[in-house]
Design a protein around this nucleic acid. Structure first.
Lengths: 367, 367
DNA sequence: TTGTATGCGTTATCAC
DNA sequence: GTGATAACGCATACAA
């Protein structure tokens, strides 16, 4: 693909006559009757306000405007200056047949915050199949064109990311990423959010609650469980009388019979974690329905996250939403801080509680 | 000039952010015992396979690997005189409270096609509120940073755009943009799509059809009307017995009584154009319901476009969809051609017909 | 086949 | 205050 590209101007003729190429500082300088360095000083907008005569400054700005000058990002970057460019590199499926796996919800906030701070965004397309730099061990290296970069998705190659970080390149991962030492990240505060849901249920009068979670050790899962337990504790509920149910196969393990057993044992509320597939929640709802329970009449149901889109016509579940735009914005704030050489702030973003329609007082609620 | 060499890196701030010394080609060269140029040749991976001895190549690759060399994209782009960056400048509301007005559907295709061609994307945030370059008459000039730029939305300032085009800067507008001479654009083929819908209705047996459109002269509107009329003509229907109903206030003007009048006059099908608000379609459906007509039993309804999201739970309307990702991809193809100095191709992208559930044979369909 | 010499556009230092 | 000038890291004619 590269060999096709016609490279005229190999060593570059002094003034390329053929093309309408971008004006450079030198041309602005000529037009303004000053030196190129002066142009750089003026346009660099340094706080050396007094160092340059108003007259010169005006001429330069005028010439630059007339020629439509805009600095070359590569040159700027090479000269160790800043670009005002923030990168976004996504390892999630970028082209959503399934909108679920798209990173656009984050991008909304990223874009907004970047705009507010005067940054433009570079979307590195290498993430997906057939992309510019999909393959190769230096796929990630292109992000160095920007002043810093955001990373989304779990599949970011740790080694390369580590190199970037080790080199001091400002990088922020959206989503918790503890295992990679030194990599900054922002994430949703699942612990607090889960605790909040439990508090809501406890407030309604529930005393025995079961959490259904998948059988893995993903941070998103363990955080929710921690929040669940914390919520129980804060509500003064005995963790022993509630339970955490782990299953690798929710659809198979979460039977109507098992649900009935729990209810017979005094459980009045069930909480499922959000998973990629929504399997836990789906299984929970299915089992409840099969067991003849209706929420919130017979049991209360809650979902630690957002429902899968194919269930959007169902009753909206009690639970919380991950504020993806907020996360994106927080990531940009953090990245901007890193670029500016400042320290990181709070990496956790609060989820928003969703009252929903699947929870209510337990059937025989005490008062 | 040798005595000056001592000065340590004049053009660099003491603490250049984001850069601890990482290996450069020169160091690889030293480690491999060759020259920097040779390293460049080997790692450049040009198909000059025979130009370099296997021995040297091996040594270089080995050294590069050992040092963990990765090329600096800024330097690479500077030297290559191209940056493989395509801009995206949107004048639509970027931060969608209303997802309708977001440009992300286009971005899907843009991103895909850009990736396939080895381009990265620059999202210029100046378009929206408070953005980097929102204000000022030179807001658009930042796009010159890229090799070319895509523009979305109707509100692109014609003058500035004209200047870019006049300067020979590769620019492509997504959506028809005839009034700006010389500006390349891609757009949806509303004419064919509307004609196709009419053909569908005619095929079902409808002979008198009413088009409801808003009272403006937007290309999207006039194109649909042209297609509507063309469809009538192709079906051998007399345009005189059908009608085009223009209204600036669909909700107010499109009454149940008026609908009944039309039906009494033999009209069996109604076609509404898609508008920003979906007003025409919504009014049409409302009036039909109020008049006691059910589609497709009593009348056939069609929508020249996609239904507003708040009507997504309703019956799927007969009509067509604007292939926004396709449009985005086509725009990138066109832009890439312009960047390469080639000529433009076909600017129109076909819409996809949607059978839907709101049309059927007319009540007293002949055969 | 490999090395030498330049230039890409910017920034920042240092004389003038 | 302003103008030379040296890098930044890489790619490529051209000489050896």
């Amino acid at each position: 693909m590269d060999e096709i590209r016609k490279r005229s101007r190999p060593g570059r003729t002094p003034s390329a006559p053929g093309r309408t190429s971008r004006p450079r500082q030198a041309e602005v300088a000529r037009a303004a009757g000053v030196s190129q360095a002066t142009v750089s000083l003026v346009l660099g907008g340094k706080k050396q306000g007094a160092a340059i005569s108003e007259e010169t400054r005006r001429k330069v700005l005028e010439a630059a405007g007339a020629l439509g000058y805009v600095p070359d990002p590569a040159a700027r970057r090479l000269a160790a200056a800043r670009n005002d460019l923030l990168g976004v590199f996504s390892f999630t499926a970028t082209f959503p047949t399934d909108v679920q796996h798209s990173y656009y919800p984050f991008l909304v906030g990223v874009e907004q915050e970047a705009a507010a701070r005067g940054y433009d965004l570079v979307l590195f397309t290498g993430s997906s199949s057939g992309g510019a730099g999909a393959a190769g061990p230096d796929a990630l290296s292109r992000v160095r064109l920007a002043d810093g970069c955001l990373f989304l998705g779990r599949h970011a190659p740790a080694e390369e990311l580590g190199r970037l970080v080790a080199d001091g390149f400002p990088a922020v991962h959206i989503g918790r990423r503890d295992e990679l030492d030194g990599l900054a990240w922002v994430g949703a505060d699942y612990v607090s959010a889960a605790a909040c849901v439990v508090a809501h249920l406890a407030h309604l009068g529930h005393r025995r609650i079961v959490l259904v979670r998948e059988d893995d050790e993903a941070p998103a899962s363990t955080d929710r469980e921690r929040g669940f337990l914390a919520g129980l504790a804060e509500a003064g509920l005995d963790a022993g009388s509630s339970a955490v149910f782990r299953t690798a196969d929710p659809a198979g393990d979460l039977t109507a019979a098992r649900l009935r057993d729990w209810v017979d044992a005094g459980v009045t509320a069930f909480v499922a974690e959000e998973t990629d597939t929504g399997g836990a929640w789906r299984a929970l709802c299915g089992a409840a329905r099969e067991a003849g329970f209706e929420a919130p009449r017979d049991v209360s149901l809650a979902l630690l996250g957002s429902p899968p889109p194919d269930l959007s016509h169902e009753r909206v579940p009690t639970g919380f939403d991950i504020p993806r735009p907020e996360l994106g914005a927080a990531a940009v704030r953090l990245l901007a801080a890193l670029v500016a050489g400042e320290e990181a702030g709070e990496p956790l973003v609060a989820c928003t509680f969703r009252t929903g329609e699947t929870s209510g007082p337990p059937p025989a609620a005490p008062a």
